[in-house]
Design a protein around this nucleic acid. Structure first.
Length: 178
DNA sequence: GTCCCGATTCTA
DNA sequence: AGAATCGGGACT
């Protein structure tokens, strides 16, 4: 399996988002195939956390591509994104769903159930044990095994829709899944 | 310092 | 349809 290099993420976000579908996200001893993502792009995207500028929370989005942007929301959930585009341009791809591969048993334990292990951004962070404290700003293109891998899998026809759970920017169909 | 609400999830 | 639950960010 090839680990995706920083150059993969340092490209237009919509392209990165679609090409992430079918790739394998590895975090610690758990992994899964990405099957749902959303793009959040820059200061002109009203749904993007960075639309009103750089803050302590969203600063990872302004950093180099290939790093994680993990944030805490609704008082109880974490969501994980992979930063895209050049340093200084705030954009990222939210990972909304994966099909569990390695460590499924561990994921079942963390989730406390055997189904719906990682079919949502909050659930996925629980399954992979990702938190803001431990994973925000982590580099996925470094020496560590954590990262995104290509095993040659080609996803079926990609579907699109408006992004989930937002109030503005519903005109953009930046959710991709299969 | 205060106030409002969220890129969610689960249950009823 | 509604609750759970708390930190960030906009604003006083």
């Amino acid at each position: 399996m090839n680990k995706l290099p920083r150059s993969f993420f340092n490209r237009p976000t919509l392209q990165v988002a679609q090409e992430l579908l079918g790739k394998i996200l590895v975090i610690g001893k758990t992994s899964g195939r990405i099957n749902e993502v959303e793009a959040y792009i820059g200061q002109n995207d009203p749904a993007c956390h960075a639309c009103r500028g750089k803050t302590e929370r969203n600063k990872a989005m302004f950093g180099p591509a290939g790093h994680l942007y993990v944030y805490f929301t609704y008082g109880m959930h974490h969501c994980a994104n992979i930063v895209t585009e050049k340093t200084g341009f705030p954009a990222a791809v939210l990972i909304r769903g994966i099909q569990p591969l390695e460590g499924a048993e561990q994921m079942e334990k963390r989730r406390g159930r055997k189904d719906h292990l990682a079919n949502g951004p909050g659930k996925l962070c629980i399954a992979l044990n990702m938190t803001k404290k431990s994973h925000n700003e982590m580099d996925l293109c470094g020496k560590s095994k954590d990262g995104v891998y290509d095993d040659g899998f080609v996803p079926p026809k990609i579907k699109t829709s408006p992004r989930i759970g937002i109030r503005e920017g519903l005109d953009k169909k930046w959710r991709f899944y299969f």
